[in-house]
Design a protein around this nucleic acid. Structure first.
Lengths: 139, 139
DNA sequence: GTTAAAATGCAAGTGCTTATCATGAGCAAT
DNA sequence: ATTGCTCATGATAAGCACTTGCATTTTAAC
């Protein structure tokens, strides 16, 4: 499938695998998690390629990078939306709160140019509440 | 001055220096920046101590850690407020938008417990707009 | 099929941060 | 003021999360 028609990227076996693996998940995995997932399936990819591919696809606007505590995470949904981060396992979930376009109009101060905003909620996710102690890093 | 009355931390020369240096600034510096600042003043502190102190003071609630792109930054203001991050230099500024307590009441989904939220605006700061290209990392 | 440009894999390198551990400093009770 | 217990510091090594250099494939266009 020609997903990369608009981009100057080549549609290689590894890039297909990585993007597909990302789209299967809703927990916004890290590069390392994606890498292990693919290896577990017997696919041959290197960690460097996973990183390079994710960064490249983000530059092309095919996915979104999430920065914050711990390793970067990746979100296949590029539409404007907000996130929840579990402070126990680090997993990130989408939040169904309507996007507030008006917040991009905020006047931060003289000379400041605002290009975007993001809202992140923190707390404990259902998976971690379930576990007795809830201090895993399994996500 | 007995700032640490409520905590079990010892009020050492280094901790005084580090907290004072942090409170003098409004750009939410990194550990490294604070370290260089103190060295430039001829004060003897090790980088490890700067890191340890900042983390310790954060645990005690005397300052706040900011995570995101690049190295962690530290904010001497622990009251609820929002931030702006310059995507050119990385500096972080406080934003004078009233804190929305109602956003902590958001229902993320069944089984989710929300403990806090944060809003971060991104864009270019006045310092970087001034510079012709505006691609420094001077912050 | 050739071919030029781009992607991959491996391994080494970098940046940020924490761990280790011997030494030194704060604090409370002598 | 001194002692003694405990915590803090400094120097350096180690660790994690990436990133980069480079030789070797692959891809996409002729």
């Amino acid at each position: 499938m020609q997903v990369l028609i608009m981009s100057n990227l080549r549609w290689t076996r590894q890039r297909k695998l990585i993007l597909d693996a990302l789209k299967e998940r809703t927990d916004h995995p890290t590069a390392e998690q994606l890498y292990h997932e693919l290896r577990a399936r017997g696919q041959s990819v290197s960690l460097a390629t996973v990183y390079r591919t994710l960064r490249a696809l983000a530059r092309e606007g095919l996915l979104r990078e999430l920065h914050g505590h711990g390793p970067d995470r990746f979100d296949p949904d590029t539409s404007p939306h907000y996130h929840f981060r579990c402070r126990s396992c680090g997993r990130v979930y989408d939040v169904a709160v309507p996007y507030r376009t008006d917040l991009d109009q905020v006047q931060v101060g003289p000379g400041f140019v605002v290009t975007s905003h993001e809202i992140t909620w923190e707390g404990i996710c259902p998976a971690c509440r379930g576990e007795g102690s809830g201090h895993g890093k399994s996500g």
